[in-house]
């Protein structure tokens, strides 16, 4: 009994620790005071109004959404293809192949950012949205691969041959069996990689140039002055990412029950 109570308290403390900064930011985004002080002033939507009255905020949101959508689509495609290759084929150096495919998240992001800047600069893509999409795809594809791999491992090894046996060509079986079976994982991977891209700051900061994404723009505003508009924008970014991540999680939970 006693340990049960302690455990609950401990878990509560962990959650408070994790979420307190975000909740604080949310609270101050609707607080009338210019500076984050206690006691609070009165409730207001003013900071949202002023923040979203700025055209550059809208441009940044638009950029972020385009980049997230493209990067998520590409990551999911690449991630699925990589995972399927691992599932379907046995070949020499498979371990090396997997290690390479899963490597990007282990590279320090600053190094990744620098490398991307140098590389994309050579391709004439630095400062373009395409450049950010490429960088984010590199970073997010391994997550998509991990999710797809998880799902493929749950697939009965006979399922695909069963489709061939019933007259489906390899491509047809892919469309009619493998993709439908993996559908929840694909959507989940899309949501998660979109969230990765939407939140990503460092590499985007290196690569983006004038085409700023939301996190990059937040830093620029922050460098100018501390303004509760940041809280307002931050709250929206947080809610967007959380929605995507929760969607991804729900799909994972739902699919493991089948």
């Amino acid at each position: 009994m006693r340990s049960g109570v302690l455990l609950r308290l401990y878990i509560a403390a962990v959650f408070v620790f994790v979420f307190a900064p975000i909740v604080t930011s949310m609270v101050f985004s609707v607080n009338s005071d210019r500076f984050p002080t206690v006691p609070l002033g009165h409730f207001t939507w003013d900071w949202y109004r002023t923040a979203f009255a700025r055209p550059e905020v809208w441009t940044a949101i638009q950029n972020s959404l385009i980049v997230a959508a493209c990067a998520a689509t590409l990551s999911t495609l690449i991630g699925f293809a990589t995972a399927y290759t691992d599932y379907r084929y046995g070949f020499r150096f498979k371990t090396a192949y997997l290690a390479l495919a899963l490597l990007p998240p282990t590279i320090p992001v600053v190094i990744m950012g620098l490398a991307m800047l140098a590389w994309l600069g050579r391709l004439g893509l630095s400062g373009t949205l395409t450049g950010i999409v490429i960088a984010h795809t590199v970073m997010a594809a391994p997550f998509a691969m991990a999710i797809c791999r998880l799902r493929l491992n749950q697939m009965d090894a006979a399922l695909e041959p069963a489709a061939w046996n019933l007259g489906a060509t390899q491509w047809r079986a892919m469309r009619a069996v493998v993709i439908p079976f993996c559908a929840p994982a694909l959507v989940s991977a899309f949501c998660l990689t979109a969230a990765v891209s939407f939140d990503e700051f460092i590499v985007a900061w290196f690569v983006s140039g004038l085409n700023k994404t939301v996190p990059v723009m937040i830093l620029e505003i922050l460098q100018g002055n501390v303004d509760p508009q940041i809280n307002a924008i931050g709250t929206l970014v947080f809610l967007t990412s959380m929605t995507l991540v929760i969607a991804a999680q729900l799909l994972i939970i739902r699919r493991s029950s089948t």
Binding site: D156, A158, L159, A162, N165, T169, V177, F181
Partner: peptide, 18 residues
Amino acid sequence: VHARDTPLVWQSLALFPF
């Protein structure tokens, strides 16, 4: 495989769950 008419009943049955 796909061009044959030799259907197989699998040990795991391999029914399509979706």
